[in-house]
Design a protein around this nucleic acid. Sequence first.
DNA 1: GTTATTGCAAACAATTTGCACCCAC
DNA 2: GTGGGTGCAAATTGTTTGCAATAAC
Lengths: 139, 139
Amino acid sequence: MEKSLVEMKAQLSSSQKRIIKVLKHTQYEISAQELYAELRHHNQNLGLATVYRILKALTLKGLARVRTSTNGESLYSLVEEDRHYLTCLHCGASIPLADCPICNLETTLRQSKLFTIYYHTLEFFGLCSSCQQQLNTGL
Amino acid sequence: MEKSLVEMKAQLSSSQKRIIKVLKHTQYEISAQELYAELRHHNQNLGLATVYRILKALTLKGLARVRTSTNGESLYSLVEEDRHYLTCLHCGASIPLADCPICNLETTLRQSKLFTIYYHTLEFFGLCSSCQQQLNTGL
DNA sequence: GTTATTGCAAACAATTTGCACCCAC
DNA sequence: GTGGGTGCAAATTGTTTGCAATAAC
């Protein structure tokens, strides 16, 4: 029998819970290094390597989500909150999309049972309006 | 006036065209290092650094797409072919989805003009059927 | 001739790992 | 006392960069 997310959360270590708490309080997403700094800032010290280890574990459990930013670092967020973006190829900004355009589809896929879906990511790449202007006028 | 993709392609250097050709012949996606090896294999030598430079340029132009695999390397593919996946959190396999479930939505978004969309990515994360079995029985 | 492209090696930065230590149960 | 969780420093790896040489126009 597959474990429910609730069961999985019960087995989390206290450090893992602390990291989840930070993720919860982060507006969008956060890098491992920022998370490490955030913990120190609250005097909840944890080694950088441990932060990486925990983030990897949470990701493997399907509790956290990773996405690679345009500058190459991994950004983490909680799966329980949807995260979708419009990412500008020019300035690298990621503008969050308010709604999830494909959650219905996910429900349908879930029922197929061929693949157990924990979460998904959706990202549009292109040019944000200010970069569009800059490229059209400047060049 | 924004440049069309056709105009952009006309400006590509011969090395860039060679790399695009390899991408075209690659079934799904390919890493920079694999692409480098592939070129050498066809006696079309090109330095690894140059391969990285070209892939970055193509990505910035919106001609190529990058995705980070579960083991951390960047995988490239041509934007002109849709790429969507079911990715297993346990074994890391990425199973391509045949159809694009959101292309209609993309058309709608395109018309808003607030953000110029070149391409998008969609990825579902979870457990593939064999890992589901393995985890259910083995553990 | 001026500009863009390239190769090579060195540099970089994010992430991972080895290992000894420590804590909880 | 056994097993997992941790810190630290060293190692690893994918990627980027400086610079001199070369090719393109």
